[in-house]
Design a protein around this nucleic acid. Structure first.
Length: 317
DNA sequence: CGTCCACGGGAATTGATGGACT
DNA sequence: AGTCCATCAATTCCCGTGGACG
């Protein structure tokens, strides 16, 4: 947190901040830290232009710029404008130092975007990714040499004691001092494998369970089920964000079990009233389902077998 | 080998939008 | 106001490459 704050501090003097990268496993708090740092900054400097972009959802240059034109400079656009138009619009309306959070930057397909950002006078960014090596490998040479990164912060998975602490604090402030025993906090911590977000979701699920049974505290025996509930909850949330194509694919797999890509496509075509091409599916929807951890893919000789993911936690977007 | 499947580059088509010109 | 034209992102089409398998 301190490092990110440092990186941003030049903005307080009206200067451009340092770019920085945050690396670490999911649930380690990267996004939370980035957002909090920006929030802090805005207490010091009111009206700093800022934006949050999830590069998984918005993975093209165009999509990111579109978001910036809305969120960073508040220039509402009717709908899909051309990249050059957007570029120009942001250029014109952006002034003074500002920050953009690029969550899941490793998913950005057109990395020239980083260079575009560099061109906006006074704009800096916080890039978030799981793995430093993957990210840098994916970066274009040209971009790598031109874009400077002042700070790199690596996050570790939370230890169990830390998660227990986080859960305890949440429990106290949200549920009262005695609703959750120390033992329950530790149990939750043990089960969520370093993922703080999962810990908190589990706590919420447990609280809901307990209160529906008319209990005033959370007994330990509810915890295990609560973890499952939390996983289901997160998954539901992810599924609800799928578009019709992705959902059709998901449902086909739900019905049919495991399928080769080609067959999956065939079933999908039968299901969906307005199917897209296999080419396009491969490019967009299938990787998306994989990334969300909703489906598992297994290389089976030259074939690729898709099936619903077994137990792993879906990604929250 | 010949075949099947997956991949992904790149050209072509589609569809929306915004002038320019009448 | 109406027609034509250019532009550009999204999507499709076409196809060569390469691994696996019999």
């Amino acid at each position: 947190m301190n490092e990110v704050t440092d990186a941003l501090s030049p903005i307080e003097d009206g200067q451009r901040a340092e770019n920085c990268f945050l690396f670490g496993p999911s649930g380690a708090g990267k996004t939370t830290v980035a957002k909090a740092a920006v929030r802090e900054l805005r207490k010091e400097v009111l009206d700093v232009p800022h934006a949050y972009v999830n590069c998984w959802r918005d993975y093209t240059r165009n999509a990111v710029l579109d978001r910036l034109s809305r969120d960073l400079v508040g220039a509402a656009v009717p709908r899909s404008a051309s990249t050059s138009t957007l570029l120009e619009r942001v250029h014109r309306n952006f002034n003074g130092p500002g920050v953009v959070i690029l969550d899941e930057v490793d998913q950005l397909r057109e990395t020239e975007l980083l260079y575009d950002l560099h061109e906006f006078r006074g704009l800096s960014w916080i890039g978030i990714a799981n793995d430093e090596v993957d990210l840098l490998a994916g970066l274009d040479e040209r971009v790598r040499s031109r874009v400077s990164v002042g700070y790199r912060v690596t996050f570790d998975r939370y230890g169990e004691d830390t998660i227990a602490e986080i859960v305890r604090l949440r429990a106290r402030s949200g549920l009262g001092p005695n609703a959750v025993s120390e033992e329950v906090c530790e149990t939750i911590a043990r089960l969520v494998d370093g993922d703080a977000r999962m810990g908190i979701t589990t706590l919420r699920a447990a609280a809901r369970k307990a209160s529906s049974k008319g209990l005033s505290n959370i007994p330990k025996r509810l915890v295990k089920d609560a973890v499952e509930d939390a996983q289901i909850e997160v998954r539901q949330k992810t599924i609800s964000k799928l578009n019709t194509h992705q959902r059709a694919l998901y449902e086909v797999l739900q019905k049919e079990g495991r399928l080769i890509q080609k067959e999956l496509y065939a079933r999908y075509q039968e299901t969906h009233s307005d199917p897209v091409t296999l080419r396009y599916l491969r490019e967009n929807h299938l990787p998306k389902l994989e990334h969300y951890n909703l489906v598992d893919v297994e290389q089976h000789g030259g074939k690729k077998e898709y099936r619903l993911a077994i137990q792993s936690d879906p990604v929250v977007v």
